[in-house]
Design a binder for these strands. Structure first.
Lengths: 215, 215
DNA sequence: CGTGACATCGAACGGCGTTCTACGGTAGAA
DNA sequence: TTCTACCGTAGAACGCCGTTCGATGTCACG
């Protein structure tokens, strides 16, 4: 079982979601496909268990972070830890939090985030919404990363900078009167960093939360 | 071409992402699968074009909204319009904004959101981050909706309320000392409304933005 | 009438998730 | 030792998928 999950995660890490097939997994484990079905009842469950396996690492990292006196700062640190993990393993974004029945670690992570809100002066509903908002920001930003990267970028024939530049180029070439914003933003886009973008979004949400908590 | 897209969207509306296959689409159109490849070079492009087709409706709705004196209120209205469209068509969340080359309407929508930030006192980078944050919130929350609903819920043998209740039950049954937050939140979850949840998250982000724009 | 360009079709291919039946090992009962 | 359950294992087979490709039709224009 453990071996199955580690191999599954390895496949996902190496080549993304489309690389995890029962046949590939069986080959890597040196067994038959039928064997995998002994441990797992279908692909969804395999994905859920693999995701939970990977989230386990995030959970221990989050549990290792000591509480400061500022719950919101702690929320921020946790969210960033989670984001970094997803940035490392983009496939996570597609499966994270899909099924908390199987994904026990995801539930525990959700709990850890929520516990910080218990230290804030909020109603239960506000707490619920706050945690949803934070995971929403993480997942929403990470979903961009989760998209299967164009082949030309994977095989190294075009690097990320050039790829973004090409996009920025088309954007800049758009009519400046019809597309004043996209036009203005093209440069930012060309040199944007996903992590900065995520943190900016997160901080907007957390600023709003701080306002709401009235502290 | 137009007919292909309308049929594709209809298929997606009726039974979600997994229902759109070339064979099903060909049957519905009364043609062969090969014909579809005449108009579209592969499934990704089909999905992108179908998505763009659907987003077109959102775009005209958004363009119909007159500017108020408060850009942030306008942003809010646009984001809600977009969310409602995705709630109607959950499959949109998976494909929205995947490829702005093909999805011209998505780009135009992005522009419309961005133009509101031009009315705010922000740096270009802050504007870029603000719009990304807003689309992130929409996509992040809508991603929950996009998940293929369990079969039992689709065929009506279990309704949404009962489904949520069952989850809330397991959450309530968790140890209150190990899971104080999840325990406290179970009731909120049981009667939560996705739209309220989204709006709460959106408002946190917009409050943060309002703070940043210093107005 | 001929000849391109445009458009349509569906059989065929390889890969996928999933099922099913058959097979090996091994622990305890006889 | 032999028999018998039972736990794992194995891989062929099924049906569906995206995609390719050569055959076929249609039709305007020289």
């Amino acid at each position: 079982m453990e071996a199955v999950l580690t191999a599954a995660v390895a496949l996902l890490d190496e080549a993304g979601g489309s690389a995890l097939t029962f046949r590939a997994l069986a080959t890597r484990l040196g067994t038959g496909v039928g064997t995998i079905y002994w441990y797992v009842s279908n692909k969804d469950e395999l994905l859920d268990r693999a995701t939970d396996h990977a989230i386990g690492g995030v959970l221990t990292a989050v549990e290792g972070q000591p509480d400061s006196e500022d719950p919101i700062a702690d929320l921020r640190a946790m969210a960033i830890t989670l984001f970094d993990a997803i940035a490392d393993r983009p496939w996570l974004s597609a499966y994270f939090m899909r099924n908390t029945d199987i994904q026990g670690n995801s539930l525990r992570l959700y709990e850890k985030l929520g516990e910080q809100t218990l230290r804030l002066d909020l109603t239960p509903r506000q707490r619920f919404h706050a945690v949803s908002a934070i995971t929403g920001v993480v997942v929403g930003t990470a979903a961009d990363l989760g998209m299967e990267v164009p082949q030309e970028l994977l095989d190294g024939s075009v690097d990320r900078d050039a790829f973004l530049q090409r996009f920025a180029e088309t954007w800049r070439s758009l009519d400046a009167t019809n597309f004043p914003f996209v036009h203005q933003i093209a440069d930012e886009f060309a040199e944007h960093d996903d992590r900065d973008q995520f943190i900016a979004a997160l901080d907007l949400t957390l600023d709003g939360l701080r306002l709401q908590a009235g502290s």
